[in-house]
């Protein structure tokens, strides 16, 4: 906080606005943009990993594993993602508490009593004695898992399609060189599939960016939470009284997302160009002719 902001009631115009925008709560609002970026930075690789597992499982020679992979990849098709976002965190939370209940609590009182879910104090997650930041981190971790499950299923779809799209002749050549199945997939299949996966994955990235405001529904203090909190009308009881300004806060968030989209589009265009170099595709052929 700036020193001249000690008495905001005496300020007017631009200085007032400067003080208003640097207040402690606004710092939390700016930090929450970091929360969103952190979620993106963690979720994207985890979801890609989930997707990779799903795609490999769908291609597996073992039948039950293949069924599992197919079920996972097809579950996002018919059901809105928001249902998963609401379902996964609470189901996971109750599942973990139930497991801890089995081990940590004495006595075998049922977990579900009427409309309540009761576990003993030792089985609570996180423990009621733990500090506030653990509660927040736990909520955030549940949100990350929910995002990773949903977007992993989307990614599995994309990667499965990309693996199928690698020309059969490439794999046969590798086999003719005497590579075994594992070597073929590690040396030929996986390096080559990325160029086919990029359009799908970049679309997925765009969907992921646009799904981040749903964090608000999971109880994480994200940008939507702070926009509603700070934007709401403040009476003169507050340090910085103002009418309902939520529309300006949401406009700021809108601009943030438009900027994110614009940056992503630029980066993806470059990445596509780099990955199609030397590939036996239309894009690769165009680049070869350009260079020649």
């Amino acid at each position: 906080m700036l020193s001249q902001c000690s008495d905001p009631a005496a300020l007017e115009g631009v200085p007032w606005l400067m003080c208003y925008l640097t207040s402690g709560k606004h710092m939390l609002f700016y930090a929450s943009f970091g929360t969103v970026l952190l979620l993106l930075a963690i979720t994207a690789p985890v979801a890609l990993l989930f997707g990779f597992g799903g795609a490999m499982a769908s291609r597996s020679r073992i039948l039950p594993l293949r069924w599992l992979g197919r079920l996972y990849t097809s579950m996002v098709r018919g059901v809105p993602d928001i249902i998963f976002f609401l379902f996964v965190p609470i189901a996971l939370d109750q599942g973990l508490e139930w497991l801890r209940h089995q081990y940590l609590c004495d006595g075998d009182a049922p977990v579900r009593q009427g409309n309540d879910f009761v576990v003993c104090a030792a089985a609570k997650l996180p423990l009621s004695t733990s500090p506030q930041w653990i509660h927040e981190a736990y909520g955030f971790a549940l949100a990350v898992v929910a995002f990773a499950v949903v977007f992993g299923a989307f990614a599995a779809n994309v990667l499965y399609g990309a693996m199928q799209a690698v020309p059969r002749a490439q794999l046969e050549t590798a086999e003719a060189y005497g590579m075994n199945a594992r070597q073929v997939s590690r040396r030929v299949l996986i390096p080559q599939m990325w160029t086919y996966a990029i359009p799908g994955l970049s679309n997925l990235w765009m969907i992921l960016i646009k799904a981040t405001p749903l964090l608000f529904l999971l109880g994480v203090e994200d940008i939507v939470y702070w926009a509603r909190e700070l934007g709401g009308a403040k009476t003169s009881a507050f340090t910085y009284p103002h009418p309902d300004w939520r529309i300006y806060y949401f406009l700021a968030i809108l601009v943030f997302y438009l900027l994110m989209t614009w940056i992503s589009e630029t980066v993806i265009a470059r990445l596509t160009r780099r990955l199609s170099a030397g590939q036996a595709t239309m894009g690769g052929e165009a680049m070869r002719k350009e260079a020649a």
Partner: peptide, 22 residues
């Protein structure tokens, strides 16, 4: 197209509601 494809539907709902209330 850029405006509506580049921003989350969730935010569009919020913003529209706040604007319509005004």
């Amino acid at each position: 197209i850029f405006l509506f494809r580049g921003s989350p539907l969730f935010i569009q709902f919020f913003l529209a509601y706040e604007a319509l209330v005004l």
